[in-house]
């Protein structure tokens, strides 16, 4: 790994100011960034650690909204997001225990790995990503593989989830990486049903709108029986063909509805 300067500010303002410097990246839990720096896929001149900022940590509920600070670890979400059990279960299934003690929700979303779990929960719940500058709706946040609406130097401060009536996440795990080979997050709210799919598309997390319509009319596993998820644009790798992933999308959607 190439060397870099390390800075650990105590406030969001100080972190945003530090990120103005050239060739500087924010560091959250580091469970993706550090391995990628070891491989020299990333070689910043400076890292600004966000995990020393207490204002970015914690889980709270206000009415029907669950708010999670961006630097909250997966383990903390798994233990404390009891108001939203499907989300807590998703967080408790990311990586392994040691990874969950370091990795954070903000880091996962900013990275937007096409096979990460959290993007499906954020898109599938219609959550709001809060940054130091603005609020971004989930539908506007994810912008393709490893790409988001975040501007240079903009950091996520929190994520606000409207707590759905019912929800469930089904992950078909790639056993070596523990990422989702394909994962489906289903949420039923007063406004209808949302279905978000991760791990499957070359464009990253996406909504399966045909299933959303069918499930909004009839929230049962059988409602998607007549549908076929398209294999166009799905990932093809040694773990699965696009057709296999398309089949998984449908199967996992049905399982999620049954378990919700």
């Amino acid at each position: 790994m190439y060397n870099f300067d390390f800075e650990q500010p105590a406030s969001v303002e100080a972190a945003v100011a530090a990120l103005q410097a050239e060739d500087t990246l924010p560091l959250s839990g580091g469970q993706t960034l550090i391995p990628s720096m070891k491989q020299r896929l990333n070689a910043p001149a400076k890292l600004v650690s966000l995990t020393g900022i207490d204002a970015l940590k914690g889980v709270s509920v206000d009415g029907g909204t669950l708010t999670i600070g961006a630097a909250t670890t997966h383990a903390t979400v798994a233990a404390e997001a009891t108001a939203y059990p499907a989300l807590a279960a998703l967080a408790g299934g990311i990586g392994d225990p040691a990874v969950r003690n370091r990795g954070t929700i903000g880091g996962s979303l900013a990275n937007n790995d096409p096979s990460a779990c959290y993007p499906s929960a954020v898109l599938g719940t219609g959550a709001t990503v809060v940054t130091n500058a603005r609020e971004i709706a989930a539908d506007d946040f994810f912008d393709g593989v490893f790409t988001t609406a975040l501007e240079e130097g903009e950091i996520i401060t929190a994520v606000k989830f409207p707590i759905p009536e019912k929800a469930n996440y089904q992950k078909f795990e790639q056993p070596a990486s523990r990422f989702a080979l394909t994962g489906v997050f289903v949420a039923k709210t007063a406004d209808g049903v949302r279905v978000a799919v991760t791990g499957a598309s070359e464009e990253g997390v996406f909504r399966w709108t045909e299933a959303e319509e069918a499930l909004s009319a009839n929230f049962t596993p059988e409602a998607v029986d007549g549908l076929t998820a398209s294999a166009d644009g799905l990932i093809s790798d040694l773990h699965g063909t696009p057709q296999y992933r398309a089949s998984l999308i449908k199967t996992l959607t049905k399982r999620a509805v049954a378990a919700a």
Binding site: F6, G30, L47, S49, T51, P97, A98, N101, R102
Partner: peptide
Amino acid sequence: AVKSCTMFAQE
């Protein structure tokens, strides 16, 4: 429990 190879000493 954390993986000490995936955390910087300064953290």
